[in-house]
Deep mutational scan, measured.
Amino acid sequence: GLPEGWEMRFTVDGIPYFVDHNRRTTTYIDPRTG
């Protein structure tokens, strides 16, 4: 799974992105792969 505090969501286009609730940021880069 994802690191603690992270969540995976999808855009309206079906593109996955990642929400970091710890820092309240979003990124398209998987936190597991950097």
Results as ranks from 00 to 15, higher is better:
residue 1 G to V: 14
residue 1 G to M: 14
residue 1 G to A: 15
residue 2 L to S: 03
residue 2 L to A: 03
residue 2 L to W: 07
residue 2 L to D: 02
residue 3 P to A: 04
residue 3 P to I: 04
residue 3 P to R: 05
residue 3 P to S: 04
residue 3 P to D: 06
residue 3 P to T: 03
residue 3 P to N: 03
residue 3 P to G: 05
residue 4 E to L: 13
residue 4 E to I: 12
residue 4 E to N: 12
residue 4 E to Q: 13
residue 5 G to W: 06
residue 5 G to Y: 05
residue 5 G to E: 03
residue 6 W to N: 00
residue 6 W to G: 01
residue 6 W to L: 02
residue 6 W to D: 00
residue 6 W to T: 00
residue 6 W to Q: 01
residue 6 W to F: 07
residue 6 W to P: 00
residue 7 E to N: 05
residue 7 E to Y: 09
residue 7 E to I: 09
residue 7 E to R: 05
residue 7 E to W: 07
residue 7 E to Q: 10
residue 7 E to G: 06
residue 8 M to Q: 08
residue 8 M to S: 01
residue 8 M to W: 03
residue 8 M to Y: 03
residue 8 M to V: 07
residue 8 M to F: 06
residue 8 M to D: 00
residue 9 R to N: 04
residue 9 R to T: 04
residue 9 R to W: 07
residue 9 R to D: 02
residue 9 R to A: 06
residue 9 R to K: 11
residue 10 F to P: 00
residue 10 F to A: 04
residue 10 F to Q: 05
residue 10 F to R: 08
residue 10 F to G: 01
residue 10 F to E: 03
residue 10 F to D: 00
residue 11 T to Q: 06
residue 11 T to H: 04
residue 11 T to G: 10
residue 11 T to Y: 02
residue 11 T to R: 08
residue 11 T to N: 09
residue 12 V to S: 13
residue 12 V to L: 13
residue 12 V to A: 14
residue 12 V to E: 13
residue 12 V to W: 14
residue 13 D to S: 12
residue 13 D to I: 06
residue 13 D to L: 12
residue 13 D to F: 12
residue 13 D to N: 14
residue 13 D to R: 13
residue 14 G to P: 00
residue 14 G to W: 06
residue 14 G to V: 00
residue 14 G to D: 06
residue 14 G to N: 09
residue 14 G to K: 07
residue 15 I to W: 11
residue 15 I to R: 13
residue 15 I to E: 07
residue 15 I to L: 09
residue 15 I to M: 09
residue 15 I to K: 10
residue 15 I to G: 02
residue 16 P to G: 05
residue 16 P to L: 09
residue 16 P to F: 05
residue 16 P to A: 10
residue 16 P to E: 05
residue 16 P to V: 12
residue 17 Y to W: 04
residue 17 Y to E: 05
residue 17 Y to M: 06
residue 17 Y to N: 01
residue 17 Y to H: 02
residue 17 Y to A: 02
residue 17 Y to T: 03
residue 18 F to A: 01
residue 18 F to P: 00
residue 18 F to D: 01
residue 18 F to V: 01
residue 18 F to E: 00
residue 19 V to R: 05
residue 19 V to E: 05
residue 19 V to A: 04
residue 19 V to D: 01
residue 20 D to H: 10
residue 20 D to M: 05
residue 20 D to P: 04
residue 20 D to E: 06
residue 21 H to S: 09
residue 21 H to W: 13
residue 21 H to P: 05
residue 21 H to G: 07
residue 21 H to I: 11
residue 21 H to R: 10
residue 21 H to T: 11
residue 21 H to N: 10
residue 22 N to T: 11
residue 22 N to S: 10
residue 22 N to Q: 12
residue 22 N to D: 09
residue 22 N to A: 12
residue 22 N to P: 08
residue 22 N to I: 15
residue 23 R to N: 15
residue 23 R to T: 15
residue 23 R to K: 11
residue 23 R to G: 14
residue 23 R to V: 07
residue 23 R to E: 13
residue 23 R to Q: 13
residue 23 R to W: 08
residue 24 R to P: 06
residue 24 R to I: 07
residue 24 R to L: 10
residue 24 R to V: 09
residue 25 T to P: 02
residue 25 T to F: 15
residue 25 T to N: 09
residue 25 T to W: 15
residue 25 T to H: 11
residue 25 T to S: 09
residue 25 T to A: 09
residue 25 T to K: 14
residue 25 T to R: 15
residue 25 T to Y: 15
residue 26 T to P: 02
residue 26 T to K: 14
residue 26 T to H: 13
residue 26 T to R: 11
residue 26 T to D: 06
residue 26 T to L: 14
residue 26 T to N: 08
residue 27 T to D: 02
residue 27 T to W: 07
residue 27 T to Q: 08
residue 27 T to N: 04
residue 27 T to F: 07
residue 28 Y to A: 07
residue 28 Y to R: 08
residue 28 Y to M: 12
residue 28 Y to W: 15
residue 28 Y to V: 07
residue 29 I to G: 05
residue 29 I to P: 02
residue 29 I to F: 10
residue 29 I to R: 11
residue 30 D to P: 05
residue 30 D to M: 00
residue 30 D to Y: 02
residue 30 D to R: 01
residue 31 P to M: 02
residue 31 P to S: 01
residue 31 P to A: 01
residue 31 P to W: 00
residue 31 P to D: 01
residue 32 R to Q: 02
residue 32 R to T: 04
residue 32 R to N: 04
residue 32 R to E: 04
residue 32 R to W: 07
residue 32 R to A: 05
residue 32 R to P: 04
residue 32 R to I: 04
residue 32 R to V: 05
residue 32 R to D: 03
residue 32 R to Y: 04
residue 32 R to H: 03
residue 33 T to E: 12
residue 33 T to F: 10
residue 33 T to D: 12
residue 33 T to H: 10
residue 33 T to A: 11
residue 33 T to I: 13
residue 34 G to P: 13
residue 34 G to Y: 13
residue 34 G to T: 13
residue 34 G to A: 14
residue 34 G to Q: 14
residue 34 G to E: 12
